[in-house]
Design a protein around this nucleic acid. Structure first.
Length: 821
RNA sequence: GCGAGGGUGGCGGAACUGGUAGACGCGCUGGAUUUAGGUUCCAGUGUCUUACGGCGUGAGGGUUCGACUCCCUCCUCUCGUACCA
């Protein structure tokens, strides 16, 4: 018995070696290759050292796509690399006392082996690691160009600061408001930081979303909301007894007459100034500086505030309204100040109630009976208590009031984006050095192109305190490229989203050492035809990558007309891998190690299960029993192939043979359709299982039967090839395929095999199924009705009833609407 | 808080543009093979009901000849929320 079983351990290595030797996974750059090109990309991994099930799922999906497209006749680019900079390497370095570089390179080596065991068809000749100077030098080059264009600039921004550790903490390193290492409360601190002006591209990033027909609607929607274009007015409030002006943005200028106070951020200059001779206020501002910088925390915390003791002058009425500081106003958003209209904004309403501030209703509903006694009235409506603007509807009032402000020099119509400029500097060691030199005389100077790359020293050891780069004299000390005097290098590094924002383009030209990308290669491969990765990247990574692609285009690195302005044509966002309903994670201890599964069942079983257990975009619940089921299926197919060429004593007459052939071709059609419709591999596999079951139930008793059975077996093996490539190759060899199964042509549907002489037509009465009739596929409504009335099981439902309506859905059902006669 | 997505048997899921709900797999039950266990094979398996049949896709309402599918209200879970990647 065991001899009959398929043994993955012995065949998987064999086929992996053959694929390697034949070079079938290398994307062909040869001009003479006339196949259309197809670029399939999975989000590259962070080299944590261990391949987890999330990776396995991601790469099995991508490999199935890449292999399917090769079989469809495409010249496929399917690259892999490493997103190698980042915080975890520094954490590991602190823990193990080894430099992050050492840890990272060792992990990459380990994960290469793990990936290869899965039998993924990668073009390893294009492998990149973002921590290598030959990669990040182009990122540095790009940044210096952006500085020249004025698209990169320096500005103060808040960071999480830990005093004892003397370092900036990532949000992830702040746990319940204290430092993860020393438990000291974290507070905010301002630091000069580098930004890239993504807001200059906000409109294009928004408009080009319309091009992304191959993206899930949800991702497009999330990006649209993230960019958050809104129109409204900028309004200037004079500060009483001062030359200062408080500028605010509002989407509701129609409620301007209802302003009863102003709110500014704790870090706002007006607040800081007022606190200088107000001890109580200073304490409050200090308290505000300890709250989280996370938007979710800011939005859900208790709203607190304090009067600054100064007033602003209402631009229209000239009345004085008090200026408050409020912990929910963010300095990083807009101007760090807002006008407050408690009558028509929920948050302002709650705040006003809490602190006894005035509430002035200026909008009412059409009936004129809306009140604000218990809650804010936030809908649009008609203006009241608004002087000359009374009686205007909200929409009209927005324009009228904005116009009034404009003509009086106190404001103007403005478009505001929720999107903020991209803060790209990090106060960390393991990242791309920002290519800038600080000179006492010349200021901030970009490193000239010929001096790039600024190479990160890889031997340094982080301690958890300040970046070791700052203490590395041979790195820090340099000369000013402009005046030649002694100067210091910037010791901040780039956000790792910088590296992952352009890697998809670098793969097209991985070995190019004269430019960031090669324009011809970009034309051949870009944009990515199919991008696959986790939905957690729906906004940040995917937005930054879209932005970067446009930056590269505008830098003239490729022809935008030929390549296009978007880097990813189609996007598949895969779900997470769960165990017992929660995400598999090391910290929770609910992981399944892919290595164990591969050792026990083979890579193909692991691949088959992850593709079968859930649709790609949904979360996948891990099931050991399900894995066994996948393994059983492969065994059943393996045994099934022994029947090829054999004749049995069955009753497979001509009709049964014809039915089998129809089944084979409807299933080729269904599998192909499932592949084409969003890569629904789970549905495709179910259809292949059905085909396998149908073949298994068939016993050929003549040559015709044998031939059809063989046709079905070959189609099944061919369609399995993108999913379980080792298994399919071995089966293909067994069946005498002319080429190895993974290079075989995808089976084609023979339309003539699909034709049916008669079908089962469902008969419904009042929409409920009451029976079936056997009719010709193109039966007329009248004939179908006669056949239904002639059927005993159906006609009993028609006794004493009058048929008032007949609906025939061709090939599907007949519905009779009746009423008592 | 805000933004987005999901909820179908005991479980994972299927159902083309509104047209037979539960394909396929897991589990379970019974049987065959086996000294036994495992494996493998065969049959059954939404639920209530003796049956006829009724009821069933998170809850409630609506549109329709017909609703898992479209509309409204609500509940709930998941993801993102800008220094994790």
């Amino acid at each position: 018995m065991s001899e009959k079983l398929y043994t993955p351990q012995s065949i998987e290595a064999k086929w992996q070696t053959r694929w390697d030797e034949s070079g079938i996974d290398i994307a062909n750059e040869d001009q003479s290759d006339t196949r259309p090109s197809y670029y399939c990309l999975e989000m590259f991994p962070y080299p944590s050292g261990n391949l987890h099930m999330g990776h396995v799922r991601n790469y099995c999906l991508g490999d199935a796509v890449a292999r399917y497209k090769r079989m469809q006749g495409f010249n496929v680019l399917h690259p892999i690399g490493w997103d190698a900079f980042g915080l975890p390497a520094e954490n590991a370095a602190i823990k193990h006392g080894k430099p992050p570089a050492e840890w990272t390179y060792a992990n990459i080596e380990q994960m290469q082996v793990q990936l290869k065991r899965l039998g993924l068809s990668y073009d390893w000749s294009r492998e990149i690691a973002t921590c290598k100077p030959e990669y990040y030098r182009w990122e540095q080059w790009m940044f210096t160009k952006l500085m020249k264009k004025g698209l990169a600039y320096r500005k103060e921004a808040e960071v999480n600061w830990c005093d004892p550790c003397h370092t900036v903490l990532a949000n992830e390193q702040v746990e319940d408001g204290v430092c993860w290492r020393c438990d000291t409360p974290v507070h905010k601190k301002n630091l000069a930081q580098w930004f890239i002006k993504i807001t200059d591209y906000a409109d294009e990033l928004l408009n080009d979303l319309d091009q992304l027909k191959g993206w899930p609607d949800k991702v497009v929607g999330m990006q649209r909301n993230w960019i958050g274009k809104s129109s409204g007015a900028e309004v200037s409030f004079k500060v009483e007894n001062s030359d200062e002006v408080l500028d605010i943005f509002t989407t509701r200028p129609d409620t301007l007459m209802g302003v009863t106070y102003m709110a500014v951020a704790a870090a706002h200059p007006l607040a800081l100034q007022a606190a200088e001779n107000n001890a109580e206020l200073a304490v409050f501002l200090e308290e505000c500086s300890t709250i989280s910088t996370k938007e979710a925390d800011v939005a859900t915390m208790e709203k607190k505030g304090m009067a600054l003791g100064i007033n602003a002058i209402h631009p229209i009425t000239g009345e004085a309204v008090p200026v408050w500081v409020a912990n929910f106003v963010l300095m990083s958003y807009g101007t760090g100040a807002v006008m407050s209209v408690p009558a028509h904004d929920e948050r302002d309403y709650d705040f006003a109630k809490k602190y006894g501030l005035n509430i002035k209703q200026v909008i009412t509903n059409a009936a004129g009976d809306a009140d604000v006694n218990d809650a804010a009235y936030t809908d649009a409506g008609v203006l009241i208590h608004s002087g000359e603007f009374d009686g205007l509807k909200s929409n009209k009032a927005k324009k009228t009031i904005t116009h009034w402000l404009t003509t009086h020099g106190k404001g103007e119509q403005r478009t505001q984006f929720r999107l903020r400029d991209w803060l790209v500097s990090r106060q960390r060691y393991w990242g791309t050095p920002i290519p800038v030199i600080h000179c006492d005389d010349c200021g901030t100077v970009a490193v000239p192109e010929q001096d790039l790359p600024v190479v990160l020293p890889e031997h340094l050891q982080p301690t958890g305190g300040a970046s070791p780069l700052a203490d590395c004299e041979e790195f820090v000390n340099t000369t000013c490229p402009q005046c030649g005097k002694a100067a210091k290098r910037e010791t901040d590094t780039f956000d790792t989203f910088m590296e992952s924002s352009w890697y998809m383009n670098r793969y097209t030209s991985a070995s190019c050492d004269t430019a960031m990308v090669n324009a011809d290669a970009m034309e051949k491969w870009s944009p990515v035809d199919q991008y696959i990765g986790g939905v957690e990247h729906a906004v940040l990574h995917l937005l930054y990558a879209r932005f970067y692609h446009k930056l590269m285009r505008d830098m003239g690195l490729f022809d935008g007309d030929k390549v296009g302005s978007e880097p990813f044509k189609n996007l598949l966002t895969q779900g997470m891998v769960l165990l017992d309903g929660t995400k598999m994670s090391k910290s929770k201890g609910n992981t399944v190690d892919p290595k164990d599964i591969i050792e026990k069942y083979g890579a193909d079983t692991a691949r088959l299960f992850t593709l079968f257990a859930a649709p790609p975009e949904r979360d996948l619940e891990w099931s050991d029993k399900g894995v066994e089921g996948a393994s059983r299926f492969l065994n059943r197919v393996w045994v099934l192939l022994d029947k090829v060429g054999n004749t049995y004593q069955g009753q497979a007459d001509a009709k049964t043979t014809k039915t089998l052939r129809r089944t084979i071709h409807t299933h080729i059609q269904r599998v192909t359709h499932a592949f084409e419709q969003g890569f629904a591999f789970n549905v495709a596999i179910a259809a292949m299982m059905e085909l396998s079951n149908a073949l298994n139930a068939f016993e050929a008793c003549d040559d015709e039967g044998k031939a059809v059975f063989e046709e079905g077996a070959k189609a099944l093996v061919t369609m399995l090839a993108p999913l379980v490539p080792h298994f399919a190759c071995e089966c293909g060899e067994k069946l005498g395929f002319e080429t190895i199964a993974v290079m075989a042509a995808w089976p084609e549907v023979d339309e003539s095999a699909l034709v049916q002489d008669e079908i089962n037509l469902v008969v419904q009465i009042q929409g409920k199924k009451r029976g079936e009739i056997i009719v010709s596929p193109d039966v007329s409504q009248d004939d179908a009705l006669l056949a239904a009335q002639a059927d005993e099981g159906i006609s009993k439902w028609l006794e004493g009833q009058q048929i008032v309506k007949v609906i025939l859905v061709k090939g599907r059902l007949l519905n009779l609407v009746v009423k008592p006669a």
